[in-house]
Amino acid sequence: MNPVIGLGAWTVKVIGAFGRMTSFAVQTAVASMRPFRGRRLVEELYRIGVRSLVIILLSGFVVGGVLGLQGYTSLARFGAEDLLGSGVALILIRELGPVVTSLLVTGRAGSSIAAGIASMNATEQLDGLRMMSVNPLGFVVAPNALAMILAMPLLSALFILSGLLGGYTVGSQLLGVDPGRYLTGIETVTTFEDDVAGSLLKALIFGVLVALISTYHGYTASRNAQGVSDATTNTVVIGSVTTLVVNYFFTALWSS
């Protein structure tokens, strides 16, 4: 095909997908309010938030440990081990916390949301709901999306604290950095306006994006096993890439 035509067709396709996603998001937002389904939200918070907790805490701890190890070896050359806390804290809070959490949650919970909704569609459970005059957007999609949006900042904060603990364990317990100075290092260098607010906002934005990507792919999957597996794959790939790209632009804009 002529590359110019190809590019044009691709552009039309992408814009169309954006339009459909936006309209899907708006419809879901409307359906989430009438009625608001607190019970369903709790169920999905369990599936999405609680079930992701262990992997988040474990990964956070290990990532923090590696930062402690690498940071220590670099800083010790200049006799600046006291900066270890500051370094670990800044990297975790500003970048790795939200980003790695989003990548992990996309793989763990986003895929499960997509597969769950796609297979409910394939097995006519969504049509079954419509037959009971229940809007599947309100009953299935909205609670999943809301739970994802709520869980992401919470999980990201827990990842960061677990990471700081990992850095502390390696830096202070194994390598001998003074524990008080590690903590002071963290406290001195982090500020709410520059670091923490940005970190939480990032996690929230990732939550919204992953929620939208996973529910949209699940809801629009074709009604067979192939559709379910495509929805899962697309969610993980698109969700992860979106996280990384949006993170770059957010960081660039936030610090300017």
Partner: peptide, 20 residues
């Protein structure tokens, strides 16, 4: 249509029961 469907019951091929 949501209102209309209250007049209709449907038994799907695989039951369409909510798994969870």
């Amino acid at each position: 249509a949501m209102v209309f469907r209250r007049r209709i019951g449907m038994l799907f091929q695989a039951g369409a029961l909510l798994d969870s």
